[in-house]
Design a protein around this nucleic acid. Structure first.
Lengths: 137, 137
DNA sequence: CTTAATATCTCTAGTCACTAGAGGTTCAAG
DNA sequence: CTTGAACCTCTAGTGACTAGAGATATTAAG
């Protein structure tokens, strides 16, 4: 039986966040000691690790909840799990692409200022001036 | 003189967001018509485009505000603008790296399920099982 | 000039995923 | 048995908006 602090240390999820997940229904209500403190079994530890992992991968809590509800499901219902993973992968890919474009532009802006500090800095101008961007956003 | 809707159409910033920026002090309080509606001049249009652009690049509003306050600054003060652009570029680069790692892993998870729908889907397991990840996160 | 459609106004509250703090109680080690 | 860390509940705050209610303004057509 693990205390909430031990759960936190083992999964890297902060204590208030664990309580928050419980409140949101992502974790079951745990047993309590005589003094009202939470005590968790290994199943809940696993589930918390699952949530952590899925969150790290960028899934919103809603999707995590959907995935949890599929626990023990079979057959066609499992297509949902596959869909979630797949659509998240595509979302991620788009975001990466967009961020890469922005990175290039930021590099351009940052270096616009190097060397000539005497006059008006180009950074301020470059942020405002969309014309000079390479791509669109 | 532009209405708030025209400002919105020209910059792509939604109407309520423009009011929100004004409330946060990022945009000056505009003139008003006799009927209390906002009317903007070209300077505010430029500033809104600046904010939009900087936000697109991932700068938090706090940094945008800092940049705005540098308008018309000279000399050493401009190093701040450069710093902001530069540190944002580095933040961005880290995020891209992390997202790329996650993308690889998601791909692995999503494809774990392809083909064999008969039994328990691997997606559910893979999300919970950190062991099988290639990298750390 | 009137009417109708659209745009705008203020204000409050909701979103997501937490995080912080107050003020109090319980547990585990020495 | 005492102390100090960990725990409890509850409320409110974060960032960057977004949504809705209910009222008023503006604009184009007839």
């Amino acid at each position: 039986m693990l205390s909430i602090g031990q759960m936190s240390r083992r999964t890297g999820v902060k204590v208030p966040t664990i309580r928050f997940y419980e409140q949101k229904g992502l974790l079951p209500e745990p047993e309590r000691t005589a003094g009202n403190q939470r005590r968790y079994g290994p199943a809940t530890l696993n589930r918390l690790a699952f949530i952590r992992h899925a969150r790290d991968l960028g899934l919103p809590l809603e999707d995590v909840a959907a995935l949890i509800s599929l626990e023990g499901a079979q057959g066609a219902a499992l297509d949902r799990a596959h869909d979630i993973a797949h659509s998240q992968q595509m979302r991620l890919h788009e975001r990466i692409d967009k961020l890469k474009r922005l990175e290039r532009e930021l590099g351009r802006i940052a270096s616009a200022c190097d060397g000539n500090h005497d006059h008006v800095c180009a950074v301020l101008h470059a942020f405002g001036d969309h014309q000079t961007c390479e791509g669109e956003h």
